[in-house]
């Protein structure tokens, strides 16, 4: 028992849920390899990993938000706004240094806006971020003037598409972000406070936890990560389209829940989120290659969310009183 608990504290240690996700990933790879001759190629593996970058970064932020009993359905459009800012800077003078700064900065600022609405303004997170989503959607439309931002200079791409000691820059950034968040979550008071708030905000307050500061910080961190995601997005595609990020929040929430983080807060898994993202992207890519139109991707994601939460609800089906007592 104590050995299990020890290992559960490791940076990449896994529990049953996480091992089964890994098995699911491998199983999906095997099935798609058999079903499609184009699947098991190094080029396609690179595509899947490439497509996972933004989702991994925003997924880490979403893990913290859900663990805290929060949520943010506006991350896709926040990434869009940050991407537009990056695109404008790039388009103006192509200076990659400035372009690298502007994404995280805009992301963090918009994170502060979300925190102001949800934390200081006490609007429930799901409603507050849904409201912001509406506002930002129009802002993106107005800023883009109904057109794509396209043909951006490759200066940012040249910086971010390189490798450091053989490791691609996106992988390095994700690894660093993962490590920092893992340390904050498991080794500092912040992590305890986050999980206590996720369990019960009122009890956390009675325990003397700085609830408002902790919640504000977490929305800020999520915004910052979304800004970094926007930077990789622009570097990769060198354009910003009207529909940017429209499925990002759905995908992130699905991946995080798949990974074993509780939608009700108080429990989370970072390694689970990473595996959840990979499984989601493997499924989306594989289905595409066996001829399922990309139109169906959100359907798959949506069904996955409902399936996972439905399965958990059924497998935990205890007398209602027991559940309430356990959560009280």
């Amino acid at each position: 028992m104590s050995a299990v608990r020890q290992s559960a504290n490791g940076v990449f240690s896994m529990n049953g849920r996480e091992w089964s996700l890994l098995v699911a990933c491998l199983l999906a790879i095997v099935i798609f390899s058999v079903a499609s001759p184009h699947y098991a190629t190094s080029g396609n593996a690179a595509t899947v990993l490439r497509n996972s970058v933004e989702l991994l970064l925003t997924g880490l932020g979403m893990t913290l938000l859900l663990a805290m009993g929060g949520i943010d359905v506006s991350i896709g459009i926040v990434m869009g706004l940050a991407a537009i800012a990056i695109g404008r800077v790039l388009g103006a003078d192509g200076n990659p240094a400035l372009a690298l700064l502007v994404g995280p900065l805009v992301g963090a600022l918009l994170g502060c806006v979300t925190a102001t609405v949800v934390v200081l303004g006490r609007v429930p997170a799901i409603v507050g971020t849904l409201g912001l989503l509406g506002v930002y959607r129009t802002a993106v439309f107005v800023l883009l003037g109904g057109q794509w931002l396209s043909g951006l200079p490759s200066s940012l791409t040249n910086v971010l598409a390189t490798t450091v000691l053989g490791v691609p820059v996106p992988a390095l950034v994700i690894a660093i972000a993962y490590l920092i968040i893992w340390l904050a979550l498991r080794r500092t008071p912040y992590g305890l406070h986050l999980l206590a708030i996720g369990n019960s905000e009122e009890k956390a307050r009675l325990s003397g936890i700085p609830v408002i500061k902790t919640r504000f910080m977490t929305f800020l961190i999520s915004g910052f990560l979304t800004g970094i995601a926007a930077t990789f997005y622009v570097a990769t595609y060198r354009n910003v389209e009207m529909t940017i990020g429209s499925t990002l929040a759905l995908d992130a929430i699905a991946a995080v829940i798949l990974g074993g983080t509780s939608i009700l807060g108080g429990k989370c898994s970072l390694i689970g989120t990473v595996l959840g993202v990979l499984l989601l992207r493997i499924l989306q890519n594989g289905l595409l290659l066996i001829g399922v139109p990309s139109l169906w991707q959100p359907v798959v994601t949506g069904v996955l969310i409902i399936g996972v939460l439905g399965f958990e609800a059924v497998s935990n089906r205890l007398p209602l009183g027991l559940i309430q007592r356990a959560r009280a």
Binding site: L195, A196, G198, N199, S200, E202, K203, L206, R327, A328
Partner: peptide, 11 residues
């Protein structure tokens, strides 16, 4: 120590 203890069950 209130009747409804202010403890976090998940910690």
């Amino acid at each position: 120590i209130f009747q409804e203890l202010a403890l976090s069950e998940n910690l």
